[in-house]
Structures are given as C-alpha cells and as structure tokens.
Amino acid sequence: MSRAVVFAYHNVGVRCLNVLLAQGVKVALVVTHRDNPNETIWFDSVQQLAEWHGVPVITPENPNVPEVVEQIRALQPDFLFSFYYREMLKAPLLAIPGRGALNMHGSLLPKYRGRVPVNWAIIHGETETGATLHYMTEKPDNGDIVAQQAVPILPDDTAFAVFQKVTVAAEMALHGALPALLAGTAPRTPQDLSQGGYFGGRHPQDGEIDWAQPARRIHNLVRAVAPPYPGATTRLMGRPMRILQTLVDNEQEMTNPGFYVRNGKAYASCRTGRLRVLRFELDGSEMTAQDFAERFGTEEFEFNR
C-alpha cells in the first residue's frame, strides 16, 4: 500500500483527499491551514474530512520549518500531494517522497500558472479551463504533467460556477491517473512554458471598474470577482457601489458611462457598449431596479471614481 502525506485546503483539497482514501492510499498525515477569521469560508473543510477518517492533521504556519520537515521525513511517504494548499513546498520537503511530489493546479497548464487561475481565466475571456495534475519543482506550476481535465467556461459563468467545475475536473483527473501513478506507469509530459504565463494573486482593489473599458471586458471582470469574492466596485452619486451580476446588452454603442433604470430593468452604459445589471449593491445594501427607481428616479447617473 502506497503511503502519502497530503497538503490540502478548500473544496479541491476535500475532493482529492477523498479520491486518495477511496483508492486505498494510506494517508499518513494531512497538512492544512487554519481558517482565517477575516476570510469568508464558503468551502468545505479538509481538516474535518481527515478527522472523520482518523488521519492525523497539523496546521503549521510554515510547512517548510525544520521540525515539520523532520516529522514528514519520519513517515517515509512514497508521495507528497498538494491540493490547493496555499504555501509553496521547498526543496527539503520535495526531496522526501520516494516516488515524487505532485500538485493539482486549477488551469490547463502551462496557461495561468500561479495564483487564482480561475479568476484570471475569466478576466481574460477564456472559453475553457480545467485542472492539471503535475510534478512539483521549486518553481511554481512548471513540473511535468501527469493528467489534465478540461471544462468549458460559458459566457456568463461566474468564478464560483467555474470553480465548481474545476473542482470536479480535479477529482476526475486524479481519479483517472491515480492507478497508473501508484503502479509507476503514469506518463510525464514536460511543459512548454512558452505557451503560458505566470499570474499573481488579486486584491479587492483590483475589482474597481474602469468604465472606459468595453462592455464585454467589464462583464468579464464582474463575473470573475462576483460573490463569494469581493465583487466589482465603482461609485455612483458619490456612494460606494458593487456590481454583482451582469449580462452584455450591447457591444457597439458609444456612450458616456452611467447607470439608469428603464422599464423596471437596470443598465450600466460603458464607453463602448451597455450592460444589463441584474444584481447590485448601493451603500452596502442590495437593491432591485425598482427599489432604485423609486428612490432616485429614472434619470441617468454618471459613475464617479
């Protein structure tokens, strides 16, 4: 029976840990994160799953400190797996497993290496993404590929919807590749790193809308940062506003950016094109198009930065 130490967090961590357990891998230890009280926890708990199955769990701030490295080395694992674990594993850890250290990444590598790949793929208007199981090296997301599973990105999919698809894709990729991996017959395909790029993390301020952008690009931003992410932000009548869900209504018309309600529907004019605004918040409170019209009327209001 193969032994593994698993570094995991989030829904991908839960689903992939389940795959290992279902296929008879001896999980000697799970390394995960303590939930951040300042973060909206909308995903399942790796720690809870491990505890249900009697697997020991640790939650170090830094997994690369000598005492954690020695604890893992003493377990003599055949494999290390990283499933949406948020810290990079350094060379001393990667050298421990006899049969390799593998990571599950939420894109079709070599595209969208690095942080929050689902959000970046939507921002750039991609129509497809997926999950990639690959060997880890000291550089992030550039090791040999073992398996990939693609999923579509539909024009109005939010990051949350796509992440749910990628979670299933990760489960499918691992489930399909694991028997060959355990048997020592899994393929290893080097990445052509010239075919993709590295992207960093995103912050709430990155969701500020530039209304000079075309409607489609703004729509992509809105759906990439829609809840449970921080949302796309702007200001209207000097008040903070979050645009939570949109549809592209027009991509050609040249207008001055503004917000208005017509016939019970809310719209946002961009420099090029127009969006139908399905959900929005003003001053921290979600309201309907009818609510807005009753309170402010149906004239068009300019967005202000």
Results as ranks from 00 to 15, higher is better:
Thr189Asn: 10
Glu51Gly: 06
Leu21Val: 08
Arg276Gly: 10
Gly13Asn: 07
Ala28Thr: 11
Val151Ser: 05
Lys165His: 13
Val55Thr: 14
Leu244Thr: 10
Gly98Asn: 03
His10Gln: 10
Phe163Thr: 15
Asp44Cys: 03
Thr298Lys: 12
Val27Gln: 07
Ile243Met: 11
Ser285Asp: 14
Leu94Glu: 13
Lys90Ala: 01
Leu193Cys: 12
Val5Glu: 00
His134Ser: 06
Gly200Gln: 08
Ala101Glu: 13
Leu20Cys: 02
Asp283Pro: 15
Met1Arg: 04
Pro240Gly: 08
Pro77Asp: 00
Arg34Tyr: 00
Ala226Val: 09
Gly125Tyr: 11
Phe79Arg: 12
Val248Asp: 12
Tyr9Met: 15
Val69Ala: 07
His10Phe: 13
Ala170Ser: 13
Tyr112Arg: 01
Thr233Asn: 03
Arg274Ser: 11
Glu126Pro: 04
Asn64His: 06
Met88Ile: 15
Val151His: 03
Leu93Cys: 03
Leu174Tyr: 00
Phe7Asp: 14
Gln290Ala: 15
Leu93Tyr: 10
Thr127Val: 07
Ala121Trp: 12
Met104Asp: 03
Phe83Arg: 13
Gly258Val: 09
Ser194Phe: 01
Asp157Leu: 07
Val65Ile: 15
Arg262Met: 09
Val14Ile: 14
Gly273Trp: 12
Arg235Val: 12
Leu17Trp: 04
Phe301Cys: 08
Arg276Ser: 13
Val25Lys: 04
Phe303Pro: 11
Pro110Phe: 14
Ser269Arg: 13
Thr59Gly: 01
Met104Asn: 06
